[in-house]
Design a binder for these strands. Sequence first.
DNA 1: GGCCTGCAGCTTTTT
DNA 2: GCTGCAGGCC
Length: 762
Amino acid sequence: MQNLLHNLNPEQLAAVTLPAQSALILAGAGSGKTRVLTTRIAWLIQTGQISPSGILAVTFTNKAAKEMLARLSAMLPINTRGMWIGTFHGLCNRLLRTHYKDAALPQTFQILDTQDQLSAIKRLLKAFNVDDDKFPAKNVMYFINNAKDAGVRAAQMEAFDANERKMIELYELYDEQCQREGVVDFAELLLRTYELLSRNQPLREHYQQRFRHILVDEFQDTNDLQYKWLKLMSGQGASAVFAVGDDDQSIYAFRGANVGNMRAFETEFRVQNLIKLEQNYRSHGHILDAANILISNNSRRLGKNLRTDAGQGEPVRVYEATSDLQEAQWIIEESKNLINEGVKRSEIAVLYRSNAQSRVIEHALFSAGIPYTVYGGLRYFQRAEVKHAIAYLQLMDNPHNDSAFLRVVNFPARGIGVRTIELLQNAATQYGISLYAAVPYMTGKAGASLGSFVKLIEGARFETQQFALPELVRVVLDASGLLAHYATEKEGADRIENLEQMVNAAKQFVSEEGYGQDAPAHLGPRSDAQAGQAIVNADGLEILDADAPLSTVMSPLSAFLSHASLEAGDNQAQAGQDAMQLMTVHSAKGLEFDNVFIAGLEEGLFPHESSSKENDGVEEERRLMYVAITRARKRLYMVFSQTRMLHGQTRYNVRSRFFDELPEESLKWLSPRVQAQWFGNRKSAWDDAPLTFGADKALTQRVAQKSSGWRIGEAVSHSRFGEGVIVNLEGSGDNCRAQINFGSHGMKVLDLSVAKLEKLGR
DNA sequence: GGCCTGCAGCTTTTT
DNA sequence: GCTGCAGGCC
C-alpha cells in the first residue's frame, strides 16, 4: 500500500483515497491523470473495498483502455482480463452480445463503422427514391447520429417542417433496415444498451449492484447519451462515480461532446469532492504561463491554473513567415538545427489545425530528406482490400448483412452485373428478406451466377467448420479470389501484403483475447452448459451475467469482426523509425513532445472561420490552442504566415487573435533579420538572439514585475473576485497595476498598492 | 467491367 | 488545388 501511494502529490493522494462517493477530478494537462485513475482502482482493490469485478472503468479510446490495463497489471498481482475496463462502445458490445435476446438482436449482429453506415444510408435513399440533392446521405447520417447521441428514437421526435418530417421518416426506415440486416452502428451500441437496461429492471439492478465503483476518463468528452448511460449504470449515483476530466481540454463538441456534463455531474451526482490537479509535470514555466493566460479568456470555466517546479525555461518563439511555403521551409530549417544539436526527430512535432496544411510541410520534409510520420489517414481495417476480406467473413457469420453482400458479390468480378442486382433487390424487397436469402428466388442466368456466389460462401463456411480463426482467414483470402485478383494488378503488391497481414492480425487477436489457439472460429448456438453465471430474476427469467468468458458469448469469428469495427487498427505510421511527428491538434491531445511547432496561427485558420458561426465556437478554438500549447515540454514555436493557399486561392491573413491573448513576457518574436543570422551560422532559435518587435511591451512588463513582486501567469486570490490569473502587469514602483482575469467575475485591472491579493498554490 | 471525365466539396475524429 | 465519387461511355 505504502508503495502504491508514495510519490503522489497531496492532491493526487487526496483524489486516490477519496471515500466511496461520486467525485469530480479536474485534471489539468500533464498532471498525472491516468496515474490517479489507475492508482485509485488499485487502492480500492488493495484496501479490500471492492473486488476487481465490482469495478467499471470507461474510456473513449482503446489506447486509453489498454494503457490503464497495462499500468494496473504492473501495480497489482491480479488477472486483469476479467475486469471491466474498456471503451463505452466495447463495453456495450459485450453487454449486447450477452443479452442479445433481450436486446432483440441476432447473436452474430455486426457493427457498422462510419463508412459502412454511410453506404447503408445511400442504399436506403436509393431504395426509397429519395432526392439526394435535398437529402444528402451525409446530412441524413448526421441527423440520425445526432438523434441517437442525444438518446432519441425517431418515434419520439416531433417534426416542425416537411424537411424534418422526412428526416425522421428516414431515421425510422434506417433503423428498420439495420434491424433486418442484423447490424448496428456505433451510436446504436450505446442506445441499445441504454434502452435494454432502462426497460429490464432485474438486469439493470444486477449491474447497478455489481458496479459499486464507476470510473470515467476524459469526462469532458461525454455526450448526452453517455451521460445518461452513466446515470443509469450508477443508479443515479448510488454507485460512486469517479469522473476525471478537464473542461479546458474539451475539443469535441462537434461530435456531440457536452462540457456541460461536468457541471451537471457536480449537481446531479451531489459531488462533495471536487479535486483539482494543477501540478504539471510536463512543461516549463513560460509554456504554462502562455497556456494559463490564454485559457483565462474563456468564460464559464470550472477554473484551474497549472503550475510547475521545472522553472521558467525558454520563452515561446514566435515566427512570422511570408507564405505557407516559407513557413514550412522555416520549420524544416529550424528542425534541422535542433536535430544537429542532438534532438531526436521523434521529439519534434508539427501541429496544425487542419489536415490540408500537412501537404506543404510534408513536401518540404521530403525534399530535405527528413523522415517523418503523419498521424491520421486510413487505418488498417479501413483499407479497401481489407474491408473486402472482412465482408466475406461477415457474410459467413451473418449472411443477412446486405452491405457486406453488395460489397463483394461481384468483387472480384464474377459476372454479376447491375441488372442482376436490381432483380435481386426487387425480390428481397418483395419478400421482405435479405439479398442473400432472396437468391433462391432468382431464376435463369442471374439465378445461376448468384447461386454460385452463395455456394462459395456456404462452401467456405462448411470447409472451415473446425478451423481456428487464422486458418479460416487464410482460406477465405484464397477462396474469395481476392489474392488472385490483386496478383494481376500492377499496384497490387501492397494490397496483397495487407491481406496476408490479416492472418497475423487474427493470430494476435486469438491469443490476446484468450481464445485457445485451436478454438474453432465458428460457434454453434449458445448452450446452457456454456452459459456463464446464470441469474434467475423474480419472473423466473434467466439473466446471464456478461462476466461470462467472452468465448461463451462470442465466437472467435464474431469477436474478430467486432474488433475490426471497434478497433480500426494502426494507421500507416511506420513504428520504430526515428521520425518527426506531423498531426492535427486534435490528434495530438494526450501526447507530449520536447519540441513543438504550432503552424498556421492565422485568423480564419486558427481560430477557424467556421467556428465563429457556432455558439462558443471561438472558446472551443481557444481550448484547442490550449491543448496545442500544453503538448510542449521544453520548446514551443508558434508560427503564422502572411499568405496561404487555400481552396486554390492565395489568402492574405492576419495573425491569430490568440497572440494578443498571450503574455508578451513569455514570447520571443523572431524577425526576418534575426532569422537571416540563424540561416547563416546554423544556430537554432534557442541561442540568444536579440528581442525584436514586441520588446517594448515585454520591457514594461519586466519592470512592473520586478518592482511589484508579482509575475504574469501567477494565480491569485481576491476577497471579492475569487481566484484569478495575472494576465498583464504595468507601471513601476508603488504605481503598479495588474490586469487579472477572474473567470466568471471577468477581467479586472487592479492597483497593486491598494488591492489585497493573495498568492495561490506556489 | 473498367476506365475516364466532370463536378462538388473543403475543420476537427473515435468508436 | 486536390481528392473522391458518380455517372457515362467504350
